[in-house]
Design a protein around this nucleic acid. Structure first.
Lengths: 139, 139
DNA sequence: CATATCGTTGTAATTATAACAATTTCAAAA
DNA sequence: TTTTGAAATTGTTATAATTACAACGATATG
């Protein structure tokens, strides 16, 4: 899979380029995690001068632009996820890891109407025990 | 619809009865909102002596017992919802009201396996503009 | 009645996030 | 090159939700 260029993405969205934005986006692209603001900070604070305020500002900016999704799968932290293909998420209640779920049998909803409400987005969160923890528990 | 008796519910779950628990559950049963800890406090703090600590303790207890569901549809607050029929939720980005969504075309998922993960619960959150706000905006 | 357990309270601590004023950056204009 | 001004970033402070915990109180059991 070709990793997209953060600078290109920013340009496509008419967002002026700064080192901080590039670094944050770069990290979101290369990680397979669904990092919190905190994780982003500790991962890239050595690569560029940046503060927490910038992280939050930038993530809000990216969210508005549709570059990232905020996940509220986890009770007390917001996780961020770069938008590629639409997909859903699974949180393991044992190891707390978040997995991407692609290709659900259904994925309609958006641009739809339910009970008269106009639906713009839908988030589906699954909770349970992940395959890794299932394996471990068997032993 | 017959409103269930809070004391009966507590007994069924082997939870010792206290005034606070009864009052909290009573409120959850009679309200059509999806209150936050805060709302619960301000609604019933005059009916019984109770503190925030008790609200949270009780809500966690109820959640574990399966009497209520924690909703994380809203970025920075937890909303609580009494468990009756399984259903999903819609949050209006204009008026912030949460609506119950019953009878989605699909509702399988639980006790299922996806990508090898064992699914125990699924939460579906819809976001958009509710029918009331749609009406208002038309005028 | 004595005592052990459980529930509640009140307060203090913690954590994530937001707000804000001061400073810096940087590109365009002069 | 220098100036200028908007936008971005910083560091700090504030806020709000939630949790932790020690002390107190009620209750049930023997």
């Amino acid at each position: 899979m070709v990793k997209p260029d953060p600078r290109v993405i920013l340009k496509e969205h008419n967002i002026p380029i700064t080192i901080q934005r590039v670094k944050i986006l770069e990290y979101l692209i290369r990680t397979n995690e669904h990092p919190t603001a905190d994780q982003i900070y500790s991962e890239i604070s050595d690569e560029a001068i940046l503060s927490f305020a910038t992280i939050y500002n930038t993530l809000h900016l990216f969210t508005k632009a549709g570059i990232v999704n905020e996940l509220h799968i986890d009770k007390d932290k917001t996780h961020y996820d770069i938008v590629r293909k639409p997909h859903d998420h699974f949180l393991c209640r044992e190891c707390q890891k978040i997995y991407d779920i692609y290709d659900l049998p259904i994925q309609p909803f958006t641009n739809d109407t339910i009970d008269g409400h106009s639906i713009e987005r839908a988030h589906i969160y699954f909770y349970g025990i992940c395959r890794e923890c299932l394996k471990k528990n068997k032993r």
